[in-house]
Amino acid sequence: MTNQLVNRRKFLGQSALLGSVAAAGTLAAPAIATAAGETTTWRVQTSWPGGIGLDFFKAWCASIKEKTSGELAFTPFGANDVVGDFQLYDAVKNGVLEAINPYTIYAQGIIPAAVFLSSYPLGLRNPAEYDTFYYGLGGLEITRELYAKQGMYYVGPIQHDANIIHSKVPIRSIDDFRGRKMRLPGGMVAEVFQKLGAKTTVLPGSEIFPALEKGTIDVADYVGPAVNYSLGFSQVTNYISMGPPGFMSLYQPVDLMDLTVGMDAWNKLPDKLKQFVEMEVHTYSDLHYAAIQKADQEAWPKFEADGTEVTRLTQDDVALMTEIAVPIWFDWANKDKDAARIFKIQLDYMTSGSLGYVDPVLLEGLELTAL
């Protein structure tokens, strides 16, 4: 793949959407002066298959060389460019890629506790709550510990959006999921929908459109409206199902991504570059989230023009789905000691005066036996 690094003038001269946000990112992180005059180049593959997510990722990667005065460069790859989404962790551990930008939920295949490292049905419900978990309640330290056991360094979470559901048929209550062939990311999310009667399957993002087009599935979750519109979902579905007003998604309201680096590549960086990458990821998370939210506002009229109808579940559906979800939380937490200690932090937060998401009655008879 050709070198996609660009200088600052080109980077800031991109589209108005990317340019304004990228400019803020450039100002947020000071350049690091190079001493040796050599560039360390990381091959970084994202899970974004297209749209604003991929565009913004590539623009960010293109900015790294100048921000570090030539010491570090990121060569970006989109979903499936080097390996498939579900091979990303093997690729970074084996040195095929130096770093990856996956959906964090995909890590559950090698780290059972990862089911709690991104949002799960009716759990923490807002981006700030996950930032609090990672940066305020010890989540980052635990996550890095678990990734280190797998030969990887977890740099930090990257916010982007809630997940929404596209369907060929209207979903007006949780009863309407019964019998539907539904794409989900697996894990706890799939189990909750199985309890609702859905027939679930796991597919990477790049395979959702053809599966909907062929009728292999008739309902699919994926990320937010801007990216999903760019991927053509309005061409193969007629409906979008969301939570009640103010609650885009009941099942994955905060679908985190992250930057994960192979431990060998990470250890070769000098301390000043390690600090830069950690700070840069935190900044990128904020700007990435804001850019995608802006693009979402531009996508909704396009869905409407294509004839897509938005349906919303009710507060009663929230209550019923919470009753289903809470025992499943405990089942998954008790499969693994690390999952239990992560979930305990989140449960204490959810039941605190700050949030109050969980009625104590729903916790009666449930224990964290894996601690």
Rank of each mutant, 00 (worst) to 15 (best):
H288P: 02
L313H: 02
M279E: 15
T308E: 09
S285N: 02
L287H: 14
D316W: 07
V281Q: 07
Y284G: 00
H282C: 10
E278T: 13
V318I: 09
A325Q: 06
D317C: 01
A299P: 00
Y284I: 04
S285Y: 01
H282F: 13
A325S: 12
L313G: 02
Q315V: 10
D296F: 00
E278F: 11
T314S: 10
E304F: 06
Q315D: 13
Y284K: 01
V318D: 05
A325M: 05
A299R: 01
Y289S: 07
A299Q: 03
V281D: 03
P301E: 05
V310L: 14
L287C: 12
E304M: 06
H282D: 13
L320G: 09
Y289P: 03
T314V: 03
V277G: 04
H282V: 12
H288N: 11
D286M: 15
A291N: 05
T311S: 05
A290D: 12
L313K: 02
Y289I: 06
A291D: 05
V318R: 07
V277S: 05
E280K: 11
Y289R: 11
Q293S: 07
T322A: 04
A299K: 02
F303W: 05
D316F: 07
G307Q: 10
S285P: 00
Q315L: 11
T283N: 10
A299S: 04
E280A: 14
T322F: 00
D317A: 00
L313T: 02
V326A: 01
R312V: 06
Y289C: 07
A291W: 02
A319F: 07
Q315M: 14
K294Q: 14
H288L: 05
A305M: 07
L313S: 01
D296L: 01
A319S: 10
M279D: 15
A319P: 02
A299F: 03
D286T: 15
T322M: 06
A319M: 08
E304L: 06
E304G: 02
H288S: 07
T322R: 04
E309T: 13
D306T: 08
L320P: 01
R312H: 08
D306A: 14
